[in-house]
């Protein structure tokens, strides 16, 4: 069983993003970048399946600029066997990413594709569903538990107000929630070992991918809330909330 894990390089979750000078992107100069946290859960999930003897190989793939080497190394240090970078001149939108991933899936023929439920930069939560559609594979989104047996995946997925359990025929695409697992802390020997693992770089031009895109007109901070008031005691707070008519 081969598992392909798709990962994305994003602004670290602890950084507060600011619009760039041109107002068409967020400021990325000298900003700490990391593997998308949900994708890290996907890598962890795949590596654990390998450690449990269910999977035989874990391949990570990123679609993006050459800078993605660092997050691919991170995934290799977590335990992935090899990595593929589809090198694009800039960050791509979900439908474009899904089409590149479709091409890699056709080459690698994995039994399962895992990825995070959304990337924390664009918050689109689209790529996995799009990939499943393009491949005509079954899908389970926002997974918090995955069990593989007899050519099927039993997946518990987070839905509004609860959970749902699905049984998918493999091959399938599964996107994972933070609740799937707690990604491991990478130790130094693992980092050293990861340096010896291969990263294959494929230029975007090798693929005949074209997809419609959204045009960004503006990237801005949302309108600020009106300045708040620091009150002195509970009585003042209750009076203020009464005045706002928000108490039952």
């Amino acid at each position: 069983m081969k598992i392909l894990v798709s990962i994305k390089r994003v602004v670290d979750y602890q950084i507060r993003p600011r619009p760039a000078q041109d107002g068409l992107d967020v400021e990325l100069t000298n900003v700490k970048m990391s593997i998308n946290p949900f994708d890290e859960n996907a890598v962890e999930g795949a590596v654990r399946l390998k450690e449990a003897g269910v999977a035989s190989e874990v391949v990570v793939v990123a679609v993006g600029t050459a800078a993605n080497q660092d997050v691919l190394r991170h995934a290799l240090a977590m335990g992935a066997d090899r990595a593929i970078l589809i090198e694009t001149p800039a960050v791509v939108q979900p439908l474009t990413a899904a089409k590149y991933l479709q091409a890699i899936v056709q080459r690698e023929a994995p039994d399962l594709v895992l990825t995070g439920k959304q990337a924390i930069d664009d918050d689109a939560a689209e790529t996995a569903q799009m990939l499943a559609g393009l491949l005509n594979w079954p899908q389970a989104m926002f997974a918090s538990s995955i069990q593989l047996a007899d050519g099927r995946a039993t997946v518990v997925r987070e839905i509004d107000g609860g959970q749902e359990t699905l049984s998918l025929q493999l091959p399938a695409v599964i996107s994972v929630d933070l609740r799937l697992n707690e990604p491991r802390f990478i130790k130094l020997p693992a980092l050293m070992m990861a340096k010896k693992k291969p990263i294959e770089t494929l230029p975007a031009a090798d693929f005949s991918v074209s997809a419609p895109v959204l045009t960004v007109l503006q990237i801005a901070e949302p309108p600020a809330r009106k300045p708040g008031k620091i009150l002195n005691n509970v009585a003042e707070l209750v009076a203020a909330l009464r005045a706002e008519k928000v108490l039952p």
């Binding site: 939108q93 979900p94 439908l95 899904a98 918050d123 689109a124 939560a125 689209e126 790529t127 996995a128 569903q129 799009m130 990939l131 499943a132 559609g133 393009l134 899908q139 989104m141 926002f142 997925r157 987070e158 839905i159 509004d160 997809a211 419609p212 895109v213 959204l214």
Partner: peptide
Amino acid sequence: ATSFGKNVLPRAAALLDVAMVSE
């Protein structure tokens, strides 16, 4: 943009080759 809409629409968007707008 509920867990239902977010699950179904991107799949349809890919099949229709549309760059969708979420949320």
